[in-house]
Simulated assay, not measured.
Amino acid sequence: MISLTRSAARYVSKLSNKLRRKLDMLSSRKEFSGSQGRTLHFLLAQTEDVFQKDIEEEYSIRPSTATELLKQMEKNGLIIREPVPYDNRLKRIVVTEKALVYQEQVVNELTALEETLTRDIPEEKLQIFFEVIEKMMDNLSE
């Protein structure tokens, strides 16, 4: 029988909820949501063209969720979607000048959050954590 107090799914869910609340409380979130900030951070770190499919894969979200997220980011003036010359069906995601204004703030906030999250956890235990989480994600993909 699965223990309700030591359930992996319960703990992952609790961590996810706490992390989402922290993301939504960051100071830059007056302008956009935590999900948009995370996505903006991802976009700003890329050196190649980024497409909706890349966002779906990075955050393991459904196409409809990614569409709504990107629509909101476009509405907030953080991104534009433009066709690529080699395939009119594909639209690359481009950050706007407005988004670039937030770059340093978003990077600093997410770096600080990561440092808080992993504080006092030895590197070898973090490596084990990542291995376990990746295996759990693989298990759920089967």
Rank of each mutant, 00 (worst) to 15 (best):
M73C: 13
A99K: 00
K98D: 07
T47Y: 11
L70F: 02
K98W: 05
L100C: 11
S16E: 14
L100A: 05
K98T: 11
L15N: 11
I121E: 05
R38H: 10
Y11N: 07
E58K: 14
S35R: 03
I121T: 08
E56A: 05
A45N: 08
I55R: 04
E123V: 15
R81G: 01
D120I: 03
I133P: 04
T118A: 08
I55C: 12
S141F: 03
K30C: 13
E109C: 02
M25L: 05
Q46W: 01
R29M: 13
R62T: 13
L110M: 09
V106D: 00
K75R: 09
R119P: 08
E48R: 14
D120C: 06
E48I: 08
D120T: 11
E114F: 10
V95T: 11
Q72E: 15
Q105K: 11
I133A: 10
V95F: 05
L19I: 12
R21K: 07
V101W: 04
F130I: 12
Q72G: 07
S35G: 15
I79W: 00
E57W: 01
D87M: 05
T5Y: 10
I2A: 03
F129N: 02
G34A: 03
I55F: 09
E109Y: 03
N76S: 15
L140T: 08
K98P: 03
L140Q: 04
K22S: 06
V94L: 02
T96H: 00
E104P: 03
F42Q: 03
L126R: 01
K18C: 13
K53Y: 04
I121A: 13
Q127P: 05
I61A: 10
G34P: 09
P83V: 15
L69D: 01
L43G: 00
L43F: 02
L70G: 01
V101L: 11
S3L: 10
E56T: 12
K91Q: 15
E74T: 00
K71A: 03
P63A: 13
I61V: 13
D120A: 08
E97I: 02
F130D: 14
R92F: 07
D87Y: 06
T47L: 06
L26T: 04
